[in-house]
Each structure stands twice: as structure tokens, then as C-alpha cells.
């Protein structure tokens, strides 16, 4: 029997790469142009209940809030830090005081859980100092890199006049 050789030798199927490469480059340029490097952001919870009085009995376990007063110079820089009436040298000292108050008391019903901090700030104080104060009272990072929580219930005192 004779077999006819139908196929032609040396002829492969050629893919049209040009449109695909065009689209791929357009996509690449789009992503390159819209790419923006942003640093990671985190949140601090602020407890600001509505001004209306709440129903029911007040919680007897609730301790009176620790008052942190931040004063500003005319330029908005921090001028003074007070925990209650006691002046603090800097935010590190404020944190040390808070660590001293909290101690090893952790878990449900502990100081960490029930204590509140009330921030009373001058109107023109730069906001970054408020974040520094919140950082000082809400936790610290151990040398191992672990976050130890201190007081996370934070609220603002009524705003002072401008």
C-alpha cells in the first residue's frame, strides 16, 4: 500500500505575539504610573460617647479617669505635660508613671481593663503631640518586640476655647 505524504515539512503554527506584547506593556505602564508607596497605618480607638446621659446606674467598678494635661506654646509645640497635677519631664516619664499605676494587674476587671485616661489639651497644640501622649499611655514595646498594653480607654476632655 502506498501512503501519500500529505503534510508539508518545516511549517509550524506561528502565534501573533505583537498585540499581546502591546497590551502587556500598556498594563505594565498603567501599574507603574499608578503605583504609590505608602507606609503602614494604624489606628487608636478613642472613646467618645454621646453627650446625652446614659440610662441605668453608673458602673461602680469604673475608676475616675486619669487626667493628662497637655499645654502648648504659641507655635503649637508641647510646653508642658501633667499627669493629674504632677508635671512630667517628657512622654517617657509619663509612660513610666502609667506603667507604675498599671503594674502587673492585667486581665478582666484589672486596671488595664477599667481605667480611663482623659486628655485635656490646649486648642492650638499640634496633633502629633496628642498621638505621642496616646502612645505613651496605651502601651509599650518590650526589647523582644512585644507590645504590652497599658490603658487603652482614652477620651478627650471638652475642648478648650481657641
Amino acid at each position: 500500500m502506498r501512503i501519500r505524504n500529505v503534510g508539508r515539512h518545516g511549517e509550524g503554527v506561528e502565534l501573533m505575539m505583537t498585540p499581546m506584547v502591546d497590551i502587556v506593556f500598556q498594563l505594565l505602564i498603567f501599574f507603574l504610573m499608578t503605583f504609590k508607596i505608602t507606609s503602614a497605618e494604624g489606628d487608636f480607638n478613642v472613646k467618645m460617647p454621646l453627650a446625652a446621659p446614659s440610662q441605668g446606674k453608673p458602673d461602680e467598678l469604673q475608676l475616675p479617669p486619669l487626667k493628662v494635661r497637655l499645654t502648648a506654646d504659641p507655635g503649637g509645640r508641647i510646653a508642658g505635660i501633667f499627669l493629674g497635677q504632677a508635671p512630667m519631664k517628657d512622654f517617657r516619664q509619663l509612660r513610666e508613671q502609667i506603667v507604675g499605676i498599671v503594674g502587673d494587674d492585667t486581665g478582666p476587671g484589672s486596671i488595664t481593663d477599667t481605667q480611663e485616661v482623659e486628655l485635656d489639651c490646649d486648642y492650638n497644640l499640634d496633633f502629633k503631640h496628642v498621638i505621642d501622649a496616646i502612645t505613651a499611655v496605651s502601651g509599650q514595646i518590650t526589647p523582644d518586640g512585644e507590645v504590652v498594653k497599658l490603658i487603652e480607654k482614652i477620651k478627650f476632655a471638652p475642648p478648650r476655647g481657641s
Partner: peptide, 21 residues
């Protein structure tokens, strides 16, 4: 608060290092 919102978070950027004055 006057509009009826109650939950607030203050946003900050993450940065290594210790507290500043």
C-alpha cells in the same frame, strides 16, 4: 457626635523608634 456617630479612631503612621519629647 452631633450627627449621631459614636465610634472614632485616630490614625497614625507606623514608625519604629521610641517616644519623642
Amino acid at each position: 457626635q452631633d450627627t449621631g456617630f459614636e465610634k472614632f479612631v485616630l490614625r497614625a503612621k507606623q514608625e519604629e523608634g521610641d517616644l519623642k519629647r
